[in-house]
Nucleic acid binder design. Structure first.
Lengths: 152, 152
DNA sequence: TTTGAAAGTTAGACAAT
DNA sequence: ATTGTCTAACTTTCAAA
């Protein structure tokens, strides 16, 4: 991971569909060199994939919320089973398994508050391992899409 | 947004770098048609960008945490100023402005717990609008990268 | 809107350094 | 590791349906 690798990672986070030639031109290296670097970064697992990002409003899911969930008993099996359950819910965008008082933080996107309520009542609350669940509507979500190495 | 558009959005979320020909072949349409559809989705703002995803461990940021922050006074100016401050922190991945008891949920990634502690003490706690901050280490983070329309 | 065909660009392989 | 060259594959335009 030298400076060129860092720059490639930064540029491809900014725009994953720019051509290899364009990328090489920006970095001041030959296209074949650039291609080799990108492949190596992918092979080493530094770059894990390329994804289109979408507007949740355009997909009719303008309402976002964060669910704070506690489950019991806290053992591996119950945690893994509940996590798998969350993954299976189409409303779910992100699942954070956290330390501290709460066990799960779940980021969801739904068409409206009705659908959030319905999802909570028909899916989440029915799970017997759930002992507590609070939900907070998200007013705004800002994502930092370009993650760089931290300067020490 | 017909079925073909939905399929395009789904496929490009899965792999944003597949060729237009490949994408067209999967959908059973002509490459020129496919190109036109993708361009329209981008122009309409359904697809907002194309981003490489990275392994946080490979970027030397293996420790993630969620900060729950309350600020006062709660008015637009203070909220916006604090949000801008958070955006400026390189450790920050996601900022959720939420309803309910807490005001901000901040997703951060750092090299180690020392850096988390340092960041909290030297940056966050020094802000006079911060009246409360709890931090939870994230054991696991699962992202649903392919967001589809919700079937009713 | 969708398409096939033509023209212009690019990716990817490879031998040389 | 980096590069220039080459060929196959691809993107993009456009006239026609």
């Amino acid at each position: 991971m030298d400076d060129i690798d860092s720059a490639i990672v930064r540029e491809l986070q900014r725009d994953a569909r720019q051509t290899n030639r364009e990328l090489a031109r920006r970095l001041g290296i030959a296209p074949s060199t650039c291609l080799e670097r990108v492949r190596a970064l992918r092979a080493r697992g530094v770059i894990t994939g390329y994804r289109a990002t979408v507007d949740l409003r355009a997909l009719n899911r303008p309402v976002q919320a964060l669910l704070t969930i506690r489950i019991r008993p806290l053992n591996r099996e119950v945690i893994e089973r509940f996590k798998a359950f969350l993954v299976s819910l189409p409303e779910v965008l992100n699942i954070y398994v956290v330390a501290g008082g709460d066990d799960f933080l779940v980021h969801v996107a739904v068409p409206d508050l009705d659908r959030l309520h319905t999802m909570l009542m028909d899916s989440v609350f029915k799970r017997r391992e759930v002992v507590d669940c609070r939900s907070s509507v998200i007013y705004q979500h800002v994502a930092n899409d370009v993650i760089g190495p931290l300067t020490v």
